[in-house]
Amino acid sequence: MTRIEKLFSNKQKDICNIYFTAGFPSLNDTEKIILTLEKAGADMVEIGMPYSDPLADGETIQQSGSVALKNGMTLQVLFEQIESVRQKSQIPLVMMGYFNQVMQYGEEAFFKKCKEVGIDGLILPDLPAAIYEADYQQLMKDNNLNNIFLITPQTPDERIVYLDNLSSGFVYMVADASVTGKQKDISNNQITYFERIEKMNLSNPRLIGFGIADHQSFSTACAHANGAIIGSAFIRALEKSGNIEATIYDFIGMIKNEKVGV
């Protein structure tokens, strides 16, 4: 059982998963960000591996990735940082990145390294499901890694079932037809989509991401799924931050609409 699966076996509602780009704002902020997020009440952390060509990401995450790369972030540095975090925290950790990074590292070596440093799951949005099934499903299972697929409002029902069956840990529900970081209110069409998926009784828990930026969108998402994923809004908060810890407490407090902190 991965830490993600353990989390969902204990808690099925209001899961707060925060995304950040590793190496942003500074190269060595990874540990501080993860540990503070945990203290502030995040249930899970998604670590973005900065990439030169992040196709599914909007401007905010692209920018943070460019900064991170300029800061010198590499997979090797990131794995070392995560290894160190794991000595201090058991929060579920998901890595998000693009398949080219994994290919270049060597797929098998990458999965093994993830297991070794204590990663629980992977989100690789451009890894085709059929290729995963044929080439990597067993390898990832052998390394105790969840693989999380995305579904979108345009994904046909039978493909949702297929992707749910291939996923483990949770299913990532993309809230809207967009790249990450588009800020707008959740529409009735989106609610209809959330409800349609709710009724499908998927085998995995569902987290809703893309466009979740404040308490209102977070609670709407939580009402229709097991929780939500927040990325760009958190990056924007970090961008303006003078004090990362204080920013994180404020941010989680804002999302949950409660006072959090030490």
Binding site: P128, I131, I151, T155, A177
Partner: peptide, 11 residues
């Protein structure tokens, strides 16, 4: 070759 694309582009 192949189609290594995010799910959003799949349809």
């Amino acid at each position: 070759g192949g189609a290594f694309i995010p799910e959003m582009l799949y349809p």
